[in-house]
Design a protein around this nucleic acid. Sequence first.
DNA 1: GCCTATTGATTAGCATCCTAACTATAGGGA
DNA 2: TCCCTATAGTTAGGATGCTAATCAATAGGC
Lengths: 160, 160
Amino acid sequence: MFFLKDLPTRQMLQSYGERYPGMDAEAVAGALRLLRRGSLLMRALEAYFTAHALSQTRFLVLIVIDREPGQGGAGQGESGQGGLLASEIADRLDISRPVVTDTVKALVRAGLLGSAPVPGDGRAKRITVTPAGGAVLADLLPGYFALIADFMACEDEGAG
Amino acid sequence: MFFLKDLPTRQMLQSYGERYPGMDAEAVAGALRLLRRGSLLMRALEAYFTAHALSQTRFLVLIVIDREPGQGGAGQGESGQGGLLASEIADRLDISRPVVTDTVKALVRAGLLGSAPVPGDGRAKRITVTPAGGAVLADLLPGYFALIADFMACEDEGAG
DNA sequence: GCCTATTGATTAGCATCCTAACTATAGGGA
DNA sequence: TCCCTATAGTTAGGATGCTAATCAATAGGC
C-alpha cells in the first residue's frame, strides 16, 4: 500500500528536480499516480472482501484454483485432474509459501476449499474448490466487477 | 498488495463476461493491470527502503514532514514554524494514528526525527526532521528517483 | 542399498497494519 | 465551578505479510 494522500505538485517536483539533477519529474509524477490509484482500488477491494468475510488474498486463492482448466471435467494441466498444489498456488500468486499454508488452512476450515493427499507423492496435497467455495465466488464476483467498473469510470480518482 | 502474477487472458475475461452479464471486461482488465503494476513498483520500492534500513512508511513520514513549508525558515502553515503534529501526519498519509505513533517512535529512536511538546497544548507534540534525518533523505532520494525512472521506462512490466 | 540434494509443506519469530478502547488535555455552556 | 464533548496520542489485541529454519518424502549417484 502507498499511503501518500496528496501527491506532490508539479512545482514541488520541479524543485526536487533542481536539487537532484538526475530526476525525471514526469516519471516520478506518473509513478506516484500509479501507486496512489492502485492503493485506493486495493483499499476499496479489501473493504469489499472484508464485508463478505474474505480478503483479497483468500479471494485470489479461490479464483486461481477455480480458473484452472480441468476443474470440473476434462482434467489435465501440470498437476492432474483439477485443483492445485500449495506450491503451484504460491507460484501463481507471488505470495510466500507460509502465507499459502495459512490461507488455505483458513479456507478449508471455512469449507470453501478441500484438501486431499496426492496419490503418487506423500508430501503434496491437492487443493480444490468445494461447491460452497464456488458458490461464494459466484456470489462475490458481480459485486467485485461492479466495484471495479465504478472505480475505473472515475478517471481522476486519487490523482489529487 | 495485489498478488496475482498472471493476469487473466482476454479470452478468460470474456468467458467471465458471459457468465456475469454486467461485467465490463475492459475495465476489469485495466484495473488488474493497474493493481499488478502498482504492486510490482511497491515491491521494488519496499526492497529499496529495506536495504537502507527504512520502509516505505517511514520514508513517507520523513518526506511529508520535510516538504512542509517553513521547515527551515519562513515558518507558517497550519501548525506553526516547521514540523507536524502526529495527527497532521496521519491526515496527510492515510495511515491510522497508532501506526503514526509507532513509526514516529521508531524514527525518533533512530535519530531521524525529533519530538517536542507544543507550548500552548499539553496533548500535542511537534515532530520535526533532524539534520540526520535530512541527510538520510538526501542520501536515499537519488536512488529512489532512479528506481522509479527505471521502472516507468519499462512500459509492459507486470502486464503479463 | 545408502548418502545427499531437492522439493512440498509447515513452524517459529518478527514486522507492520488495522480497529476499538483508553488516558489526558482543551474548550464551551449552565 | 462543574460537566459534557471534542481532540491528541497511546495501548491492547488481532490479522496478515515476510524470512529463516525445520520436517518429511522423493530422486539421483555410486
